[in-house]
Measured scan of single mutants.
Amino acid sequence: TEYKLVVVGAGGVGKSALTIQLIQNHFVDEYDPTIEDSYRKQVVIDGETCLLDILDTAGQEEYSAMRDQYMRTGEGFLCVFAINNTKSFEDIHQYREQIKRVKDSDDVPMVLVGNKCDLAARTVESRQAQDLARSYGIPYIETSAKTRQGVEDAFYTLVREIRQH
């Protein structure tokens, strides 16, 4: 089974770092803004072998026109913010609204991801993020692309959301 996953969120929150940590098991430290990259990885989730087709997208506003296209083809979405960047957390709402509009559905598989949880300088409390996820009816997972904490959990949870859909 193949799953088309799309990673969305503001610029600099760590979308590529999360994806590369999942696929290649290493942490990319330097920031190089993405336009669009796709990665494929075969994994076993709950005993089922599946192929993850992951689209890593641009957070930069100037590429926002490309969003409709990949939102149409994606089956599930990782909505990523950084726990030390309140603005990126506030941006999640717009991504969710755009996904709902493009998919013409209120019920699209999504996982809210709070990345950079290895950093002490948190400005978005776990509780705020949990409340937001609960209001959307989606899971919330904290990750660190640096330490790998929660990385597999985030992507695998999204696959489970798609399966249950």
Rank of each mutant, 00 (worst) to 15 (best):
N85M: 06
Y31S: 01
Q149C: 07
D46C: 09
D53P: 03
L51K: 04
T1F: 08
I138N: 04
H26L: 15
V13R: 00
P139F: 05
G9C: 01
K87G: 11
V7R: 01
D29S: 05
D118T: 03
Y95Q: 04
Y140K: 00
I54C: 04
S135R: 11
I35R: 02
R67V: 15
Y31W: 02
N84A: 12
V13I: 15
S88Q: 09
L112V: 10
V8W: 09
Q128F: 08
D46L: 07
E61R: 14
C117R: 07
R163T: 08
Q69V: 06
F89Q: 11
A121H: 10
E75D: 14
T123I: 06
H26N: 10
T1K: 09
Y63T: 13
P109F: 05
V108N: 02
V113D: 00
D68G: 06
D118S: 03
V43W: 11
E90I: 08
Q42K: 07
D53L: 02
A121Q: 11
V80W: 01
D118H: 01
K41R: 11
V8H: 05
D53G: 03
H165I: 13
S144E: 14
I92K: 02
K4M: 05
Q130R: 09
T143G: 07
N85R: 06
V44A: 07
I162E: 02
E36H: 03
A145Q: 01
V8P: 00
G12S: 11
S38L: 13
M66V: 15
F155L: 09
S126D: 10
L51C: 10
K146P: 13
D153Y: 05
R96V: 15
G9E: 00
L5V: 11
G59V: 03
D29Q: 15
E36M: 01
R72N: 11
I138W: 06
I20T: 03
S126N: 07
D91P: 04
E75V: 13
A120T: 09
P139M: 07
G11H: 13
E48P: 05
M71N: 10
K15M: 00
L18G: 04
G9R: 00
L132P: 03
L52T: 06
Q69D: 14
N84D: 14
M71R: 07
I83D: 10
L112H: 01
K116G: 15
F89S: 05
V43Q: 06
V44E: 07
L119I: 11
M66H: 14
Q164G: 15
D106I: 08
D29I: 04
V43S: 08
L132I: 08
G137Y: 03
H165D: 14
V111D: 01
E161T: 09
C79Y: 15
Q60L: 14
R122D: 13
D104W: 06
Y70N: 13
I138G: 03
V43H: 14
M71G: 06
Q69C: 08
D56A: 00
E62V: 15
Q42D: 09
E97R: 10
I35N: 04
D29E: 08
Q21H: 10
Y39M: 00
A121F: 05
